[in-house]
C-alpha cells in the first residue's frame, strides 16, 4: 500500500472473534501531512469492523483537534488500509480453519 506517513496498527492481539478492535495511530512522517500535526502522541481508539467507516473516525479525529481538515483523507486512508488488512487476515485464517 502507498505510504501515507501515518501508521495504524493493532493495539491489542486480534482474537478474530470481536468485531470491535483497538487500534493505535500515530504520525511517522510529518512531511507527508499537509497540515501541521500538532500532537506528539499515539491515538488509541476502538473500531468496529462490521459497522464503522474509517473516514468517519478520521473526521472525528479532525473534529477533536488532532489533525487539520486538510489531512482527513490521508488519515482516513491510513485507517482504511489497516482495517482492510485485518479483515483480509481474518478471512484467511477462517478459510484455513475450514
Amino acid at each position: 500500500a502507498e505510504d501515507t506517513g501515518v501508521r495504524v496498527e493493532l493495539a491489542e492481539e486480534d482474537d478474530c472473534t470481536k468485531s470491535s478492535i483497538a487500534l493505535r495511530l500515530w504520525v511517522e512522517d510529518q512531511k507527508k501531512l499537509k497540515g501541521k500535526y500538532k500532537d506528539s502522541g499515539a491515538i488509541e481508539f476502538a473500531f468496529d469492523l462490521d459497522t464503522e467507516v474509517p473516514e468517519t473516525v478520521a473526521q472525528e479525529m479532525v473534529d477533536s483537534g488532532f489533525f487539520l481538515e486538510i489531512d482527513v483523507k490521508i488519515v482516513g486512508k491510513s485507517i482504511r488500509d489497516r482495517v482492510s488488512l485485518i479483515k483480509w487476515r481474518r478471512q484467511r485464517s477462517a478459510s484455513a480453519r475450514n
Binding site: 501508521r7 500515530w26 511517522e28 512522517d29 510529518q30 512531511k31 500532537d39 506528539s40 502522541g41 499515539a42 491515538i43 488509541e44 481508539f45 476502538a46 473516525v57 472525528e60 479525529m61 473534529d63 477533536s64 488532532f66
Partner: peptide, 27 residues
C-alpha cells in the same frame, strides 16, 4: 512520561499517549 490523555468526541474515546522514540522515523 507515560501519562495518557483521554479525549471524548462524538461518543468515541481517544486515548493519547507518547510514541516511543524508536517508533518514529528519522526526520
Amino acid at each position: 512520561s507515560s501519562a495518557a490523555q483521554v479525549v471524548h468526541s462524538a461518543g468515541r474515546r481517544f486515548i493519547v499517549s507518547p510514541v516511543p522514540e524508536s517508533r518514529l522515523r528519522e526526520q
